[in-house]
Amino acid sequence: MMRTSFNPLINPLINNEGISGLLFALGIALGITPALFFIPEATALNILTCEPEWKALAEQIAPHSKIYSATSALQDPHHIEARPGLIAKMRNADLAICSGADLEAGWLPLLQMKSANARIQNGKDGMFYAAEQIDTIGKLENVNPTMGDVHPEGNPHFHLDPYRLMTVANALAERMAKIDPNHGESYRENIKQFDEQWQKNIRKWEQEAKPLKGMQVVAYHTSFEYLFQWLGISMVGDLEPKPGLPPSGKHLSRLLKLAKNTRVDAVVYASYQDKSGAEWLSKQIGVPAIKLPMSVNDNNKSQALTSLYDDLIGKLLKATKSNG
């Protein structure tokens, strides 16, 4: 039987360094500069996010990771089915990133249980709750079923406050570095660049949004409470009679009476919320009905979060001009 023998320059590299060493040796043998052999960087982390805003943030900090969002901007993150595909994604995740504050209480625990992934259970480094990194608004000490769909740990939609989002981003970068120390310096460098650009964006947004200060709106529940608080917008009426309940005819009539005695500049609703009540009320009052995005889309990954804020402020400014 003929025995195959390897060149002594190549053989040790096959045994010790694998394909990278083989390509290096072949390059030398053929007179090709080894730097011309490009070997893609290994995937850093396998990440599952509960909402698309955290996927967009993770892409900024860990661009070489595999990242999947359980929901889209057109879905209500309160109500998601723990389908088999999501269970499989959870099973393979090194890191799960969720809002917390009970936003995903109806489906995340089931995903954690059925995935049987020890890395992403509560209390483990692989389970990252953004709400635990910041102070939420609207915390409740005493909650009962008659109050509707409320969140005792506070309003979970804090990604619409750029300052809180930046705090979450820095905590997330450190968590990634802890889970994946081999790429720790990369995460820290990326978050440094993110912070610098994000602070520039905040200054730009606050300058652009000055005309919005003092604006008064009717909106759904607490969806945009952080955004309104940041921009100086007052929510003078709630489209929901109780959190989680759609506006009834009786409730809309009450809001119509409210508008006769209180200035209302616009009626606001999220992209996944029922628009019928909002549009009816806006027509009756004679003010714009504004559909605002609740989260990012995938049209521009590198600028997804920036585009979200640009869009939010742009749509609100357009409403003030139309009232002008």
Score class of each variant (00 low, 15 high):
Pro34Ser: 02
Ala35Phe: 00
Ala35Asn: 01
Ala35Tyr: 01
Ala35Gln: 10
Leu36Pro: 03
Leu36Val: 09
Leu36Ser: 07
Leu36Asp: 08
Leu36Trp: 07
Phe37Ala: 04
Phe37Met: 12
Phe37Ser: 12
Phe38Ser: 14
Phe38Ile: 11
Phe38Thr: 05
Phe38Gln: 11
Ile39Thr: 01
Ile39Glu: 12
Ile39Gly: 08
Ile39Asp: 09
Ile39His: 06
Ile39Phe: 11
Pro40His: 08
Pro40Gly: 09
Pro40Gln: 06
Pro40Ser: 13
Pro40Met: 05
Pro40Cys: 07
Glu41Ala: 14
Glu41Pro: 02
Glu41Thr: 13
Ala42Val: 15
Ala42Ile: 15
Ala42Thr: 14
Ala42Arg: 12
Ala42Gly: 15
Thr43Ser: 09
Thr43Gly: 13
Thr43Val: 12
Thr43His: 11
Ala44Cys: 10
Ala44Phe: 03
Ala44Asp: 10
Ala44Leu: 08
Ala44Thr: 06
Leu45Phe: 03
Leu45Pro: 06
Leu45Cys: 10
Leu45Tyr: 08
Leu45Lys: 00
Asn46Met: 07
Asn46Thr: 13
Asn46Ile: 03
Ile47Asn: 06
Ile47Pro: 07
Ile47Thr: 11
Leu48Phe: 15
Leu48Arg: 12
Leu48Met: 07
Thr49Gln: 04
Thr49Pro: 03
Cys50Ile: 07
Cys50Asp: 02
Cys50Met: 14
Cys50Pro: 01
Cys50Asn: 09
Cys50Leu: 08
Glu51His: 09
Glu51Met: 09
Pro52Glu: 04
Pro52Cys: 02
Pro52Val: 12
Pro52Ser: 00
Glu53Pro: 09
Glu53Leu: 14
Glu53Gln: 13
Trp54His: 12
Lys55Asp: 13
Lys55Arg: 09
Lys55Tyr: 01
Lys55His: 14
Lys55Pro: 05
Ala56Thr: 04
Leu57Tyr: 01
Leu57His: 01
Ala58Arg: 08
Ala58Asn: 10
Glu59Cys: 12
Glu59Met: 10
Glu59Arg: 13
Gln60Thr: 03
Gln60Glu: 14
Gln60Gly: 10
Ile61Arg: 15
Ala62Val: 01
Ala62Leu: 02
Pro63Met: 09
Pro63Lys: 11
His64Gly: 07
His64Glu: 05
His64Tyr: 14
His64Leu: 14
Ser65Lys: 08
Ser65His: 06
Lys66Glu: 02
Lys66Ala: 01
Lys66Ser: 10
Lys66Asp: 07
Ile67Leu: 00
Ile67Asn: 05
Ile67Glu: 05
Ile67Cys: 05
Ser69Phe: 03
Ser69Asn: 00
Ser69Tyr: 06
Ser69Leu: 01
Ser69Ala: 00
Ser69Met: 03
